[in-house]
Computed example of a mutant assay.
Amino acid sequence: MENFLDLDITLDVLRYVQPMLIAGALLGLLGGLLGPLIVTRKMAFAVHGTSELAFTGAAAALLIGIGVGYGALAGSVIAALLLGLLSTRDSDRDSVIGAILAFGLGLGVLFLALYEGRAANKFGLLFGQVVSVGSADLWLLVVSSVAVLVVLALIYRPLHFASVDAAVATARGVPVRTLSVVFAVLVGIAVALSVQLVGALLVLSLMITPAAAATRVTASPLKATLLAVVFAEVSVLGGMVLSLAPGLPVSAFVTAVSFLIYLVCRLTSGKRERVR
């Protein structure tokens, strides 16, 4: 009898953990692939701004009673389009992001204030609530991730060229402006999907930190991308597993593992520079 009970408990745990691990693995893959390009293009602040608009869309969805994932996706795509279209010059980028971020965050706070449901849902938008990932959310995540990966594969070569040297890419006929908008949308989708895992305030731990760690230890774009994927997966899946025993928020462990990897890579690169 006890063996059957133990088996039932094990199956329940697996059913509980499986959607989390699948969601985490997909988001780690997206973050690892997009991260090096984000770092190269100096878009860390843009990612933060997009995450705040994803929070606004999610808060609006929570208020009107539709899927939070769809609201976050709509909010982040709108933010990405606005940032891509309004940031015509590099000198304008930070001010445009700041203006859109402040407006979006204000709307998000208003939507949460009007929402009369559970407080846990409000905090989940800010700090993540991966335990709430259901079958519908998981399918949205899978379909969106596949779409991002397909588009990224199609535009990667010209996008990387434009990211490294936009002036030369423009002279060679590369549609730099169009690629910037498309990439901003891809980042927006990835950010929206990440909000449910680590929350709007901690998206940078998935989209930026692994890539920043990878670029500290290698100058090769290919190696940096592979390392960023590995670092992101270790951060996400490791953080999830570590959070199970104490039952604490996943985001705290994901960000801690990610930052620890960054510190190790930074110390390693520092030692190499001193030896040279």
Rank of each mutant, 00 (worst) to 15 (best):
A213V: 05
K42E: 15
F231G: 03
G247M: 01
F127L: 13
V234L: 14
V17P: 02
A119T: 12
I9H: 01
T209N: 00
S180K: 09
M1L: 11
A60E: 07
L110R: 03
Q196W: 02
S243H: 04
V181H: 09
I66R: 03
L83M: 15
V68K: 08
V198A: 06
T209F: 02
L5V: 00
V275S: 08
D92C: 00
V254G: 02
V133G: 05
A184Q: 10
L73F: 14
V133S: 05
V264H: 08
D137K: 13
V230A: 15
S251F: 03
F183R: 04
L237R: 07
G32F: 12
S51E: 14
G32H: 11
V130P: 02
V182H: 02
L138G: 06
A44N: 14
L140D: 02
S251W: 07
M43V: 08
S258L: 05
N3I: 08
V176G: 06
T218I: 08
L202F: 13
V13S: 06
T50N: 14
T88G: 10
A224S: 15
A119S: 12
F123Y: 13
L242P: 09
V275E: 10
A166H: 09
V182F: 10
A59C: 12
G106K: 07
A119Q: 11
L81N: 11
F231C: 02
K122C: 03
L227D: 03
V254P: 01
N3A: 13
G134W: 09
G71M: 05
S95D: 10
S251Y: 00
E116F: 01
L138W: 13
R41Y: 05
A44M: 14
D8W: 00
T268C: 12
V254H: 02
L125E: 08
F4K: 01
E52L: 15
I78D: 10
V185H: 03
A171K: 08
A79T: 14
V146K: 03
A25M: 12
V217P: 00
I78C: 13
G108W: 03
G49I: 11
G24P: 07
I64A: 08
T268R: 12
H160A: 06
Q129M: 13
R157L: 09
A46W: 03
L105S: 13
S144N: 04
L33D: 02
L29Q: 07
A252E: 05
V47P: 07
G32I: 12
A44F: 12
A214Y: 04
F103E: 07
Q18M: 15
A99H: 07
S180V: 00
L140V: 12
G247N: 00
L154G: 02
I78W: 10
M240K: 06
F127S: 09
L110G: 01
L11C: 02
L244S: 03
F161N: 05
V275I: 12
I66D: 04
S87Y: 06
F45C: 01
V230S: 04
A256M: 09
V236R: 07
A44Y: 13
V198M: 05
V236M: 15
G117D: 11
A184K: 00
G238A: 08
L248W: 12
M207R: 06
L179Y: 09
V130W: 04
